[in-house]
Design a protein around this nucleic acid. Structure first.
Length: 512
RNA sequence: GGCGGAGUAGCUCAGCGGUAGAGCAGGGGAAUCAUAAUCCCUUGGUCGGGGGUUCGAAUCCCUCCUCCGCUACCA
């Protein structure tokens, strides 16, 4: 992927019938970190999230709540807006599939597919369970019943189909041409083998419910929810106006962040729809893993769903953000546990990072009259630490380019560790009594290292990182990544600093 | 059944042809600037079993065992 100025990252749109849980928060957070990183790195960023509001389940839930579907979704979609805020994420747009701009885009895309000859009217037939509200394949039936044990009946209804079968070769060519289009690699393998196994045409309309976007020219049909939902990525760029600056700048999307359960929709159906409509398929779909809770699979019936609002209230926003992105290699499944969360918050953040900042700033306060000291001549040990700090951005940038935020954090905390060792080895509290010149060089070096660390942690822990940079009196414009490295800015001797204040409180065991 | 992935220290994992590594947990010590935080040292593994290739295998090949994912239309 050549250097491209624009960066378009999307979260899936969340189905309003769910309550926001850790999975939603996690995906949105991952997008946010990518978005924030790219912005600080000088790229033009568009970060989109939103809600998916059509479908039979919503229609039914609205009815049960005694509300019109639109009024119902207006209400429940707010829960996701709140989650987006509570997680400290920074979307540029929040789209809802019930908005006019989206309906217009879906109808336009549908027409393109029709024009391309990829839509035809047929009959959708299958075993349907009224109780489960689901169709089952012949092979899924157990003793003539649904896998759930529910009775099934043979149902046939008219349906429009998308000629997915015709796209097999072109999809495979796309995967071939863009080896990074589906990540992690294990998911790519699954998708490739799925497509190689042959594709059937896809039913893309329903007549069994009304709450959706009508098929243009045949209002008895409602457009299949996935075709509807996926189109949000285009609607938010003003599709069908493909000439606008917004559209030409950001399409195709650089990164569709998704959970592993919906890779197929994003990596098979979506690129096929797009190519059929004459649009470029996404550059990359990244599938992250699932969380377990204290080793247990999370499920509503077990009642161990993790509520992101509660999580943030209990452990703190930056702590939760750090934990979720650091604890687990991004792309794999991970386990959330109270003990691990506290360990990360207390050891990594309070002890290693927070305490480093605190001890250095306190020494500056006392030994240098609360001003950035004049480094004078640097010793080899100083240069060594600075070199590590200066090299950080390149390492972190490479990690983020492969959507590996855990690697980025690991590299950053490597430098935190080095800095603590450096402070111990240099023992500035001894220098304070014997060697003021050397003291200044050491403290300046430590401050400069902290500046690099805090700037690179900005995307991950925006609040705490900003506070640290405040304490180093780093101006807003100097917080961009262009001010890092050997050719970047430097802390200016003499700059007065505010009184240091802890940014990562130690969490008591009882907090859990 | 088919395809793919994984089995390495108590835990999570890296290493992927050249005398076994990291983080955390456990043990001992140093220091006292700091949110009693930090730093140093250290216990610990016949790298799932068996066979083979090689001067040499955790690393390649075969086989067996165990676990996981995918194998289409639920939002």
């Amino acid at each position: 992927m050549a250097a491209r100025d624009a960066f378009y990252v999307t979260s899936p749109i969340y189905y309003v019938n769910d309550s926001p849980h850790i999975g939603h928060a996690y995906t949105t957070l991952a997008c946010d970190v990518m978005a924030r990183f790219m912005r600080l790195d000088g790229r033009r960023v568009r970060f989109l999230t939103g809600t998916d509001e059509h479908g039979q389940k919503v229609e039914k839930a609205a009815k049960e709540a005694g509300k019109e579907p639109q009024a119902f979704t207006d209400e429940v979609s707010q829960r996701f807006r709140r989650m987006v805020e509570v997680m400290g994420t920074s979307p540029d747009d929040f789209i809802r599939t019930t908005e006019a701009r989206h309906k217009r885009a879906v109808a336009a895309l549908w027409q393109k597919l029709v024009d391309a000859g990829d839509i035809y009217l047929g009959t959708y037939a299958g075993w349907y369970s009224v109780r489960d509200e689901a169709f089952y394949a012949e092979s899924e039936l157990v003793d003539g019943k649904a896998p759930t044990g529910a009775p099934v009946e043979w149902v046939e209804e008219p349906s429009y189909f998308f000629r997915l079968s015709a796209w097999q070769d072109r999809l495979l060519a796309y995967y071939e041409r863009e080896p990074q289009a589906i990540l992690p690699l294990s998911r790519r393998n699954e998708i490739v083998s799925f497509v190689k196994g042959g594709l059937q045409d896809l039913s893309v309309s329903r007549t069994s419910f009304r709450w959706g976007i009508p098929v243009p020219g045949d209002e008895k049909h409602v457009i299949y929810v996935w075709l509807d939902a996926l189109t949000n990525y285009l609607s938010a760029l003003g599709y069908p106006d493909t000439e606008s600056e917004l559209f030409t700048t950001f399409w195709p999307a650089d990164l569709h962040m998704v959970g592993k359960d919906i890779v197929r929709f994003h990596s098979v159906y979506w690129p096929a729809f797009l190519m059929s409509a004459g649009l470029a398929p996404p550059r990359r779909v990244f599938a992250h893993g699932w969380w377990t809770n204290e080793g247990q699979k999370i499920s509503k019936s077990l009642g161990n769903v993790i509520d992101p609002f509660e999580l943030v209230a209990r452990y703190g926003l930056d702590q939760v953000r750090y934990f979720l992105l650091r604890e687990v290699p991004f792309g794999q499944d991970g386990d959330f546990s109270r003990a691990a969360m506290l360990r990360r918050a207390n050891h990594d953040l309070a002890n290693d990072y927070g305490n480093l900042v605190q001890r250095v700033l306190t020494l500056v306060q006392r030994g240098c009259a609360g001003r950035i000291p004049d480094p004078g001549n640097l010793a080899p040990e100083d240069d060594e630490l600075l070199a590590a700090a200066h090299g950080l951005l390149a390492t972190v940038r490479a990690a983020m380019a492969e959507v590996a935020p855990h690697k980025a954090l690991e590299a950053i905390f490597e430098v935190v560790g080095r800095a603590n060792r450096y402070v111990d080895a240099q023992a500035p509290w001894v220098l304070a009594k014997r060697d003021p010149v050397r003291l200044r060089a050491v403290l300046w070096t430590a401050c400069e290292t902290i500046r690099h660390v805090a700037t690179t942690t900005l995307p991950f822990m925006p609040t705490a990182s900003a506070k640290i940079l405040d304490q180093l009196a780093v101006s807003e414009p100097a917080r961009r990544f262009s001010s890092l490295g050997p050719d970047g800015a430097r802390l200016v001797p003499g700059t007065p600093l505010p009184k240091p204040e802890g940014v990562f409180p130690r969490l008591a065991e009882a907090a859990a």
